Amino acid sequence: MSYSSVASAVTTPPSSLGAAGSYAVLAGSTVTNTGATTLNGSLGLSPGTAVTGFPPGLVLPGNQTNVANGPAGLAQESLTTAYNTYEGLPATEENVTVLDREDPFVGGVYNSPNSMLLSGTMVLDGQNDPDSVFVFQAGSALTTESGSSISLINGANICNVYWQVGSSATLGTGSSFVGSILALESITVTTGATVAGRALARNGAVTLDTNVFDAPDCGEPTPVPTDTPTDTPVPTDTPTDTPVPTDTPTDTPVPTDTPTDTPVPTDTPVPTDEPTESESAAANPTESRGGPDSRTGSDTPDGSDSPAGSDVSGEDSTESGVPAGSDTDSAETAADQSDLPATGPGALTGMLVGLSALLLLGGAALLSIRHRRSHSSD
């Protein structure tokens, strides 16, 4: 029985890489590149953090670079699940160590407890079944030599070719490789090798050197955008800034200090104390004027209080011809003149002083009120 008849008699499982399906290169420890490597697929690393050689390496637009973040960790989880799934498949053919044989490989599970080696050309035949799946299980290492190649015929699909490698994989210089490598440890792609598929390493490194990767779109679910919702909460910080304008209402109570200055006009009653002084000043002239009146009654030459005494003395003076009347008049005028400084000018001076004091106090009060109002307006 040929290899083709044996393999075609077995039904193989559908392919699935989950979140790892969008990656051309995914590693566990490091990703190192030399030269102008081009990745038509995403670049991921988890849990490692060291990616070197990008640039000059290039991840083409429309793809992502995820390093030690949520999407990369999710891709590693999907890779582990897929690795365990393909490792546990029952083999349709065992002890397959040489890959460049004459008969082509048809859909099936090919197992080697040790290593697998490709030195020349390997052919995968889909037998016109686009759903045919090719799984190769290498117990230890997978090695392709320089210039080796893999070709697909009769509808074989790149999306359905898987290499489960128990340790590490090495692709030779200038080789042409097809399919997705799921390696437990590391993957080394040497100078000028091309890969129509993926290099996915669970625990180790992926090392590149001027390579070209073209990871096909196999319709795998890509939960990578699920990390974008984690970034969306960032705009929620802007509402936290909105409370800043709330400080402005706290400044509004400041104008309330101006009403507190309004009680200042209560100083205006101060001039009301001054009329008491004016009343006293007005009372003094009346008392001074009352003094002369009492004196004029007692200034008669004969000492009598009645006006008759003054008439008698006047008559006596006229009859005798003695200038007694003149002496009396001169005495009265002298008395009036002696009383003038005490009664007349003294009262006027008091009134003037009182009025001046009132004017000064009123002016001072007005100046004080204007001064305080000007401060309150400021």
Rank of each mutant, 00 (worst) to 15 (best):
Ala72Asn: 07
Ala72Cys: 07
Ala72Gly: 06
Gly73Met: 12
Leu74His: 09
Leu74Gly: 11
Gln76Met: 12
Gln76Lys: 15
Gln76Tyr: 14
Glu77Asn: 09
Ser78Ala: 14
Leu79Tyr: 15
Thr80Asn: 14
Ala82Met: 09
Ala82Val: 12
Ala82Ile: 08
Thr85Pro: 01
Tyr86Ile: 11
Glu87Trp: 13
Glu87Val: 14
Gly88Asp: 11
Gly88Pro: 03
Gly88Thr: 07
Leu89Asp: 05
Pro90Ala: 01
Pro90Cys: 00
Thr92Asp: 13
Glu93Met: 14
Glu93Val: 14
Glu93Phe: 12
Glu93Cys: 02
Glu94Phe: 04
Val96Ala: 02
Val96Gly: 01
Thr97Met: 06
Val98Met: 12
Val98Gly: 05
Val98Asp: 05
Val98Cys: 02
Leu99Glu: 00
Leu99His: 03
Asp100Arg: 07
Arg101Val: 15
Arg101Trp: 12
Glu102Phe: 14
Glu102Thr: 15
Pro104Ile: 03
Phe105Glu: 05
Val106Lys: 08
Val106Ala: 04
Val106Leu: 08
Val106Cys: 11
Val106Glu: 08
Gly107Met: 09
Gly107Arg: 10
Gly107Tyr: 11
Gly108Ser: 09
Gly108Asn: 09
Tyr110Ile: 01
Tyr110Glu: 00
Asn111Leu: 06
Asn111Arg: 14
Asn111Ser: 09
Ser112Arg: 00
Ser112Leu: 03
Pro113Ile: 10
Pro113Met: 08
Met116Tyr: 07
Met116Lys: 03
Leu117Ser: 04
Leu118Pro: 01
Ser119Tyr: 07
Gly120His: 14
Gly120Leu: 11
Gly120Gln: 13
Thr121Met: 08
Thr121Asn: 12
Met122Cys: 11
Leu124Lys: 06
Leu124Glu: 12
Leu124Gly: 04
Asp125Asn: 13
Gln127His: 15
Gln127Lys: 12
Gln127Cys: 08
Gln127Arg: 14
Asp129Tyr: 05
Asp129Asn: 13
Asp129Val: 09
Asp129Phe: 06
Asp129Pro: 05
Pro130Cys: 02
Asp131Pro: 00
Val133Ala: 01
Val133Lys: 01
Phe134Ser: 00
Phe134His: 00
Phe134Thr: 06
Val135His: 03
Ala138Ile: 02
Gly139Phe: 04
Ser140Cys: 03
Leu142Trp: 13
Leu142Ser: 00
Leu142Phe: 15
Leu142Ala: 05
Leu142Arg: 01
Leu142Cys: 06
Thr143Asp: 12
Thr144Pro: 08
Glu145Tyr: 15
Glu145Met: 12
Gly147Leu: 07
Ser149Val: 01
Ser149Thr: 13
Ile150Glu: 07
Leu152Gln: 06
Leu152Ala: 03
Leu152Trp: 11
Leu152Thr: 10
Ile153Val: 12
Asn154Val: 03
Asn154Thr: 02
Asn154Leu: 00
Asn157Ala: 08
Ile158Tyr: 10
Ile158Gln: 14
Ile158Cys: 02
Cys159Thr: 12
Asn160Trp: 04
Asn160Val: 02
Val161Arg: 00
Val161Trp: 03
Val161Leu: 02
Val161Ala: 00
Val161His: 00
Tyr162Glu: 04
Tyr162His: 11
Trp163Tyr: 13
Trp163Met: 01
Trp163Lys: 01
Gln164Leu: 02
Gln164Arg: 15
Gly166Thr: 13
Gly166Asp: 08
Gly166Ala: 10
Gly166Phe: 12
Gly166Pro: 11
